[in-house]
Design a protein around this nucleic acid. Structure first.
Lengths: 322, 322
DNA sequence: TTGTACGCGTTATCAA
DNA sequence: TTGATAACGCGTACAA
């Protein structure tokens, strides 16, 4: 491999002059600069980025740490890579399967200078363990997290869920069945708060219809339809954990000959790719904007500059299931 | 940052001995090894991987080059990261948006030793351009490609499409409408060959029903339903480019009060995540196995060993739309 | 404006 | 089995 010394030699200058000419930093006379550039072209020179990283202490690489990279994360991934590449950064993946040991591997990659920073999407480890690593580089979370050293780009789902509830109310639904995800998650708790406030605002009985908890798959949705039939049709609308649950409800309803929204309304959450196919009314979640914020935070720390982050907003996407 | 010299000093050995003790390569007496290890633990030592890469010439990092990282690629990504991590490798993303200039950036990353190898999912550049870079490291393609220097893990879609056609035939459908993707793609051509052979085998008229070309979105599927209604219902089954087209057909049929499979059957391709929700019969495509093959090929070249690759097989997933 | 000299942190070579 | 020494390729302080 041809290196910068050979370029310097062929151009008849010193390696440092060659370095300056190639990187554009520092003073070089136009004449020598040209000599260096042509020499580099002739010898098919390419800088060794490992040497650059070793020398400068920066890799211009950030790590994305997630359980896996399928939906709905693929949008976040795509968004993060987009922001990163726009600024000359690159994204390296660490897949944990929600396994704490694998999470440590990603943190170690930061410590070993394989990446300059980390974006955690979701994790299982103790927050304090993760916080121990911020001394090696910035760490940002997608998951909602409260820690002064670890910024989070989460969105308060209170707002999004309220959007769904208000929409159902406006459409005349009064017996709303909440299908919640994992109860220990802060997101779920925010949604529960939203529902409580919603009931207070419109003077509704919060217990008019039972709720479900820890449901997040299409299969869960299917079961809920059968429950609904076997229990005297106790709801006229479902506000769902996510589009998967909503899809399960719709799919099973169709199999059983029920009609949406005549028999009951369904509102999803996330606006996944397939939501339009089911004509699913849902809450849109600007995941790419979150990714771009995550990158902005990282870049502002690494390069020690001020960068604006734009607070993302939930949006109701009205289709035919409500 | 504490480095290997400090470890050596504290353990009372030379840096080279410390290196051997830490890496496990070369002879070190048990006693000194222990001294080094405890010193490393006490000083909270972590090796600088940039220095290691510079010295050894290997990064244990491979690049994944794709237009974007949403479905159906997220499965390939996940599969590749899985295989890579199992073997101590890491995956870095390059998103091209099918832009040739961005593809060159990925190739340059290989040349500049940011990654040891590249996996191209899909590309627009001339194959010869890409082939110019194999001297810097192995390059493997997902896309079907014929080049001695660039192995491909493509699957011949002839087999998969034939599976779909045979299934439709067996179910009694005789007026099959083919919905093809981009005609210049080899995959599409394979499917066309499959259909020709299929007609020959069962003595069917290949022109009994018109075909569509260059269709690959849900919206395309929706249009096709309207075409079908306006043209005297000329088909009793649709063999689709992918699950998106199939979903579009099903969704639009439902909106128009048509019934699947009574009015017509629909067979998809890819078995995407949402296929079960639509009860879509489709052809399953073991993308993760392809990813694992891609990695096996790369590893066998990098480490100069023989690794088996397992030829992946298409599988018919029978649901309710046929 | 240019060149010398050094250091980034590690591993490989080779002689002892 | 160990240690001195060199080298990987680059950037940069400093002197000229």
């Amino acid at each position: 491999m041809t290196n910068i010394q050979e370029i310097a030699q062929r151009a008849g200058v010193s390696p440092s002059t060659a370095s300056r000419a190639l990187s554009g930093r520092g003073y070089v006379s136009e004449e020598k600069k040209q000599r260096v550039l042509t020499a580099a072209a002739e010898l098919d020179y390419a800088p060794n980025l490992n040497a650059v990283s070793l020398k400068t202490g920066s890799t211009r690489r950030i790590g994305l740490v997630a359980p896996r990279f399928t939906e709905p994360l693929s949008l976040f991934t795509t968004g993060l890579v987009h922001s990163a590449e726009e600024n000359g950064y690159t994204v390296t993946l660490f897949m944990t399967g929600l396994n704490a040991a694998k999470e440590v591997e990603a943190l170690e990659a930061l410590r070993r200078k394989q990446v300059d920073a980390l974006v955690f999407v979701m994790f299982q480890s103790d927050l304090s363990l993760i916080a121990d690593y911020v001394k090696y580089g910035p760490i940002v979370c997608w998951q909602r997290v409260i820690h002064e050293a670890i910024p989070s780009v989460f969105m308060n789902q209170y707002d999004g869920y309220m959007l769904a509830l208000e929409h159902l109310y406006e459409r005349g639904y009064r017996r709303i069945c909440n299908v919640y995800g994992a109860t220990q998650r802060l997101n779920t708790q925010s949604r529960m708060e939203a529902f409580a406030d919603f009931c207070r605002k419109y003077d509704l009985d919060p217990l008019a219809c039972p709720s479900f908890e820890n449901r997040d798959t299409a299969r869960d949705g299917e079961q809920i339809v059968r429950w609904w039939l076997e229990n005297g049709r106790p709801a006229d609308a479902f506000a769902c954990t996510n589009d998967w649950v909503a899809s399960g409800i719709i799919a099973e309803a169709r199999r059983l000959g029920l009609r949406v929204p005549e028999d009951f309304a369904v509102c999803g959450f996330d606006n996944l790719d397939f939501a339009p196919l089911l004509d699913l009314t849902t809450i849109h979640y600007p995941v790419d904007e979150q990714a771009s914020n995550a990158f902005a935070i990282i870049r502002s720390r690494i390069e020690d500059i001020e960068l604006p982050t734009h607070p993302p907003r939930f949006r109701l996407v009205e289709r035919l299931t409500t």
